[in-house]
Design a protein around this nucleic acid. Structure first.
Lengths: 224, 224
DNA sequence: TGATAAAAATGATTTAAATCATATAATTAT
DNA sequence: ATAATTATATGATTTAAATCATTTTTATCA
């Protein structure tokens, strides 16, 4: 998949990047970076699957993103201090292109077009993040977790949509901000409602429309 | 207060901006922009006070930000479609500098340094937004609403910290994502605990340390 | 100014979701 | 393979916060 860099960095700065980049590989369950770690930079995923999460005040984990090839990693620590307790864990073996912070800064400050698209990228991330603030009943949030999982790692096969790497109930709970018991019950309900099906780990989506509707219920008009 | 533009836009592009900018003024309770409105651009607040909110799926309002002089407005609609149901309402008469989208884009694409700082600005906004996702008990969220209100519109006078423009209980509820009854109860508790005091509308902060602690409780270590 | 509306306060009741308690199935390690 | 650990499933109980109901206070405007 075409990465951000491929698309927007100018030819000359790509050459610069080629000199300064590093290629790294991580195995399943390894941590690419975590909480307050020094020496950060940016990562572009070349292959594999990653989950990005951080520690909540009560000590539990919160999963905020799933990422796969072509996507950027590590940009969330930008702007603040690097103490932000965020971490990236490998779900399936990954190869990444590592860009040291200094190198990235140099490029962004020099290549205005790249810089512009980076800004737009962050703006879009902000918009998405903001959209998460709305609070919905948990069944909707769990549906959203399944949908996010499908969007990140899903594919279509014959009649139904499968998820290549189905997350654990605990991960869903961590995405939806609820407990895994609640996730179990919500999934059971969705199965009963013929929206999804599962047998063992892998989840099939039987009715994507219904799932989307549940994940993002339509706006009601304001009272009064 | 020094705005973003003042700080980071280069001299030559400031001249360009001076030609294309518009100065606008809005009275209390007027709406600067809202939900899906066409012809957006960016606003820099020169004076006054604004609240930024959007409509939630259940029709209720969610307050996401308070802004005052020097701050940027309207950047949240970036990246997505402009249908994002966000609006800005005037709390106290404002003057703004309006920058049409085209003008802004031209500047950002041309001035790499400005672009870089815009990117960093969005990155910081993303970080802040993400930090809101954690869910805390409501009493903490209400404390945070008060603290945000103080940070946006507060000042120190003699011994205690006052809030120049105290929001309504409904606005606090809208910030904390709870009901106003719960806000009333939480505020009453904080008063009893000598953290804040109020008599009529204006809130005084008696113990800023305690308030901050309540708003951002320290991390606990993970179980197991 | 008094009338009317809106905001704040407080109590009683309901409810969604967390927590607690076990049981069963599925992995992983020995 | 068998044991040990981890993940999933489900029922019972508790709890935080929403909702409903009503009163008091404060602001708004004819």
């Amino acid at each position: 998949m075409l990465s951000f860099i491929d698309k927007y960095l100018s030819k000359e700065w790509k050459e610069y990047l080629n000199i300064h980049k590093e290629l790294k590989a991580y195995k399943k369950n390894e941590i690419i970076f975590h909480a307050g770690e020094e020496g950060h930079g940016l990562y572009v995923i070349l292959s594999g699957k990653v989950k990005v999460s951080y520690l909540q005040f009560n000590g539990s984990e919160r999963l905020i993103r799933l990422a796969t090839s072509g996507e950027l990693l590590g940009h969330r620590a930008f702007g603040g201090n690097w103490e932000y307790p965020i971490s990236a864990l490998v779900l399936e073996d990954v190869e990444v292109l590592y860009i040291p912070l200094k190198v990235f800064e140099t490029m962004v400050k020099a290549d205005a077009n790249f810089s512009f698209h980076m800004m737009m990228f962050f703006a879009e991330e902000l918009r998405k993040s903001e959209a998460k603030i709305k609070h919905y009943p948990v069944k909707n949030l769990v549906a959203r977790a399944v949908l996010d999982n499908y969007r990140a790692f899903g594919f279509v096969e014959e009649s139904d949509s499968k998820i290549d790497h189905t997350l654990s109930r605990r991960d869903y709970a961590s995405m939806a901000g609820t407990t895994y018991e609640t996730v179990v019950r919500s999934l059971a309900q969705m199965k009963k409602d013929q929206i999804i099906d599962f047998e063992g780990k892998s989840i099939h989506i039987l009715d994507l429309d219904k799932l989307q509707n549940l994940a993002h219920p339509p706006y009601k008009k304001a009272k009064k």
